[in-house]
Design a protein around this nucleic acid. Structure first.
Lengths: 203, 203
DNA sequence: CATCAATGTTGTCAGTGTCAACATATTACG
DNA sequence: CGTAATATGTTGACACTGACAACATTGATG
């Protein structure tokens, strides 16, 4: 699609990059296309040659976020070969870490700003891929007899829900101060994923 | 604060109500103060006599959402007296139901649109109250020996995370179609909360 | 009844997303 | 090599939005 740049040098990428940066600097509501264009040093309509509209640019940013998440899920698996329980805890920890590093992007990915339907098929595909990473862990755990039997999809959703909920509560600032981002969150994530594992373990 | 209305009859309430309705009709990005004013039948700056700015109005809407959540948590407790496990499942189910009924409001409550700091102390208080409802269930479960011992705050967070994550994934449209809103979600919430309980249960 | 604060309106402004028309650079093709 | 076509970037414009100031009106207070 963006094979070789003409005037500016890969503007498509630079817009995505600048937009991601600006997104994290302020909150999502105050991200303006014009500010992005100014940051890259082009006119205020130049982005329209690369993105249909603002929402489309946001979808691009969210896509990058899902890709990062997927990659971290794969790393979690690789870090603890043949130990699904450890993989799951590692995945949970990395999930939280990614979100803490890019809270605004995370909100964009899951905050219902982008349409749920198939307006952006590529985006949905990226999201499904991240979920797929979790399902692989669950499946392996079931095969090895570490996790309880049952609908793999449901067990994966169960695990995902726990991690996801913790993550969004953390970055959303909805937790009492004792549990907030400002404290060391490692014991928190460990406690949560441990409880989660207790719920998944085979009898 | 809004003791007796002067001209219009409790405009403060009507704006909140109209804004909530418009919020759910479209997504959150396309809610405009002017549209709210038009819907109520006042000029486009009338809302500024009742809300400092747009964000302040949004905070008001979110507050109503938290109040509803708190009320549902209390109902969940009342529905299954002296059965913390059932209370927790009931709470989870109601949590999801409230969110499905007001998805946009839920995103507003947790989507990081509003500042996390103490700009709106009343809002934070409402949110903490909902969390408090969960903690009561956990505490009762521990006292009765149904739930495992440990930091009550952490256990409550664990439970909340699971329910919260499921809820946001559902309304965010981030789940594969097999698990989406379109199917009957009762078995899903039951499966999740059951796994959760397995993780909380005392040995 | 007079005063004043609370409430609502009109007018205005800067900022935003988006489109159309135009300008320029790169590629494709004879 | 040169010209046409296309991809890319710019300028100008428009409607819409949040927000403010100045003004108008209503109700309460004395």
């Amino acid at each position: 699609m963006t094979s070789k740049p003409y005037h500016h040098g890969d503007l498509h990428q630079q817009i995505l990059c600048a937009a991601s940066a600006l997104l994290e600097e302020n909150n999502i509501g105050s991200l303006s296309l014009r500010a992005v264009a100014k940051k890259v040093g082009v006119s205020h309509t130049a982005p329209y040659r690369h993105f249909k509209d603002k929402e489309s640019l946001l979808a691009g940013i969210a896509g990058l976020g899902f890709d990062e998440l997927t990659s971290q899920m794969k790393l979690a698996v690789a870090t603890h070969p043949s130990d699904p329980a450890a993989q799951l805890q590692e995945a949970g920890h990395r999930y939280v870490q990614v979100a803490l590093k890019n809270p605004q992007c995370t909100q964009l990915m899951f905050g219902g700003i982008l349409p749920c339907d198939d307006t952006y098929p590529e985006l949905r595909a990226s999201g499904d891929l991240a979920f797929e990473g979790l399902k692989i862990i669950i499946r392996e755990g079931q095969v090895r007899g570490v996790f309880k039997q049952g609908d793999e999809e449901l067990l994966a959703l169960s695990a995902w829900s726990g991690i996801h909920g913790l993550t969004l509560l953390l970055i959303g600032g909805n937790l009492p101060e004792i549990l907030s981002i400002n404290v060391d969150i490692r014991p928190i994530t460990t406690a949560i994923t441990t409880n989660m594992l207790d719920g998944l373990r085979a009898d």
